[in-house]
Simulated scan of single mutants.
Amino acid sequence: MPRAFITGITGQDGQHLAEFLHGRGYDVYGMIKGQNNPRASKLQEEMPFVELISGDLADLPSLVAALQQAQPDEVYNLGAISFVALSFSQAELTANITGLGVLRMLEAIRMVGGTRDNPIRFYQASSSEMFGEVRETPQTELTPFHPRSPYGCAKVFGHDIVVNYRESYGLHASSGILFNHEGPRRGIEFVTRKVTNAAARISLGLQHELVMGNLDSKRDWGYAGDYVKGMWLMLQQDEPDDYVLATGETHSIEELVVRAFGEVGIDDWQKYVRQDPKFFRPAEVDLLIGDASKAKEKLGWEPEVDFPALVKMMVENDLALEKAKAGL
């Protein structure tokens, strides 16, 4: 059976990927940081097939030990300080984990066995936030980067160091430049889940307003479950490469709000939504829209869940969760 090692196993993408790989017959290993991590027990309840291994992207020896224990055929590096807003207040931590963490994992793979003769295949979670102040629309694998946050800057370093290790040492290392991908497992701090959860709670009388930042920013939103298949497909190719995964459609945050509130029967959403300057970024990314032509042609990848279906899925999930918590 093939063996996969996933960092960021407790996050949205890590959980989707673990399920996907398990369904394809993989032995799945996930890296967990710290003792008594509260997310670990929940993950083990939901996914008992995942074997958890201790490790930290800030500590190279722990990564070497984790890989020696798992002996994986494929490594998926999804671990990061991934909340863009937090990266402005914790820039050094973001650079250390989201940026240098990639370098440490590549070094660990080299040390354990990732050469042309003994290849561990490596996937790096790059991000559309690397494009930032976009130079062209839509964005492709060749669009220049202009990140607008410490998170975006760290992701650029991670992306470039993957290319460098691929070219310098012959590692089978690929990066997926993923545009925004969401779902019911998205953390409540992220804008999509913040909106769908608020819509559900307001409709149930459990919350009275939704406080937002910029409503005009536009994003290319897809479903996380679709995107993890793309990650896997990249590592099944004979040659490593970089691929954009995106829907090719863009929607504003206001459109997201309108559709989420519409799902719970609230048309006058303006009554419940208030903007607060504290939720505006110091440097905003106004428009992201990806061109996934390369992934469609070379990988045969296609997104299956469209924007309306994604929002509906998330609102329905939040309604069920909030009703259960409130005993309704």
Rank of each mutant, 00 (worst) to 15 (best):
D291R: 13
L204Q: 13
F145D: 06
M111C: 09
E249A: 15
D318M: 09
D59Y: 00
A292P: 04
E19R: 06
H146E: 15
Q35I: 01
R201T: 08
S168D: 12
V305P: 03
G265A: 01
G113A: 13
A198D: 09
G55N: 12
D220F: 11
M234A: 13
L206F: 10
A125I: 03
M231E: 13
P119E: 11
P72I: 00
I81T: 11
P277K: 15
V50E: 04
T10F: 12
H208R: 14
M231P: 01
A295P: 00
E46D: 11
F49W: 14
T250L: 03
E322T: 00
Q270S: 09
Q90A: 10
V112Q: 07
N77V: 08
H251R: 07
R185C: 04
G30F: 10
F49L: 10
Y227S: 13
N77T: 08
S82A: 11
M314R: 05
P184W: 05
G230D: 10
V195F: 08
M212R: 09
T140R: 15
F49K: 14
Q15W: 11
I253G: 03
T143H: 04
I97T: 13
D160N: 06
E46S: 10
A40T: 06
M212E: 10
D291E: 02
T143R: 02
E239N: 12
D306M: 07
G262V: 06
L235C: 06
H181T: 14
L86W: 02
G152F: 12
K155R: 15
L21E: 10
P282N: 10
D306Y: 05
T196W: 02
G222V: 07
G170K: 08
A58T: 13
E304Y: 00
A18L: 09
N96F: 09
P240R: 05
W301M: 12
M31Y: 08
Y29H: 13
D318R: 07
D242K: 04
V273H: 11
D226N: 08
L86G: 00
S149E: 13
K294I: 02
H208C: 06
G99R: 01
Q139Y: 14
G225H: 05
A326F: 01
D268T: 14
I6M: 07
E284S: 13
G176D: 06
I202V: 05
L287A: 01
K294Y: 03
A40D: 12
Y123F: 15
P144N: 10
Y76F: 13
K218T: 15
L287R: 12
K229C: 05
T137K: 14
A198C: 00
G99K: 11
A324M: 08
Q90D: 14
Q44M: 04
S127L: 10
R39H: 15
L43K: 09
L310P: 06
F179T: 06
V112D: 06
G114K: 00
S87D: 00
H181L: 04
E45D: 08
Y151M: 07
S217F: 01
I97D: 09
I177F: 07
L86T: 01
L43N: 02
